[in-house]
Amino acid sequence: MSETIQVEVTPREEVSETAVLEVRDLHTEFGSRDDPIAAVRGVSLQLHRGRTLVLLGESGSGKSVMARSVLRLYGRNARITGSVRLGDVDISAADERQLQAVRGERIALVPQDPSGALDPLRSVGSQLVEVLRQHGIVPTRAEARDRAVELLRLVGIPDPKRVVKAYPHQLSGGMRQRVVIAIGVSCNPQVLIADEPTTALDVTVQAQILELFGALQDSLQMAILLVTHDVGVAREVGDEIAVMYAGRIVEHGPTAKVLDAPAHPYTAALLASVPTPGIARGRLSPIPGRAVLAGESMSGCPFAPRCQRTVASSWLVEPDLVSIEPGRFVACSNPIRPEERIAS
């Protein structure tokens, strides 16, 4: 599905004008000011029309907080700094009323758990109609109803006229996820943020949903930010991948390059720890220890305690995300060089 989308490898500076969404130096902190827990620590990224950027990371890496911070969904609980620009709108400076106008209409979220996102006491149709009416997409209730049925058909729900009257508990997990996606795309947003949209689903249903994302992207030309912990999903849908560790992006580049020739030791270690089907059995190469948690004190590179490629500076300074080749960025004092990758 993503093959049809042209993957141009252009340095970030050049494409910045065409970005649909631009995030610069985003920080998200929870807790008290005296003892803050920094979940996201300076993330910058751009989303482009018709392309998918995958945020790949393990639990606690800050990937979900990052996605939700873009939408400013944390209210007063979080201190978010940095800039988020959606075309002409500066989300980071918007007030609640401006945010309401943008959310759902120009930038939408598909959450991980569809059961938690749907109101159990209202029919699927009325929840779709609400979004459409809220944003004034359709003038009358009757038209909204028709549009709701159309949207359910668009996301591949069989018998949408029946499902539009159904309540969430009457649908399977895969169907509920399709409904949530239908709500997400109902206002034809420029940007869709999907937070682990298939993690709760069985693999055969996951395959259906990923296929659906590809088809919707082709027809609606949305920019998608997809958050996942699953390397397979990342490979499948991502045009680009940004790998997160301890609240920062440690590697960013075109999917094939990042996954086939990782430059950051964490990316390489993560890939080596996943069993590869069909390849001779043997021992996996786990990453020793565990990830640092947000709020834990650290000096130098957060991955250093688990890394086998540390150099003296790894323990002293946290490396910045720098360009190693056009379109590829890595934050490491001793990145894996191309000649090493070929040798191994």
Partner: peptide, 8 residues
């Protein structure tokens, strides 16, 4: 478990 721990 997270993938890196799962392997362990």
């Amino acid at each position: 478990l997270d993938k890196s721990v799962q392997a362990q």
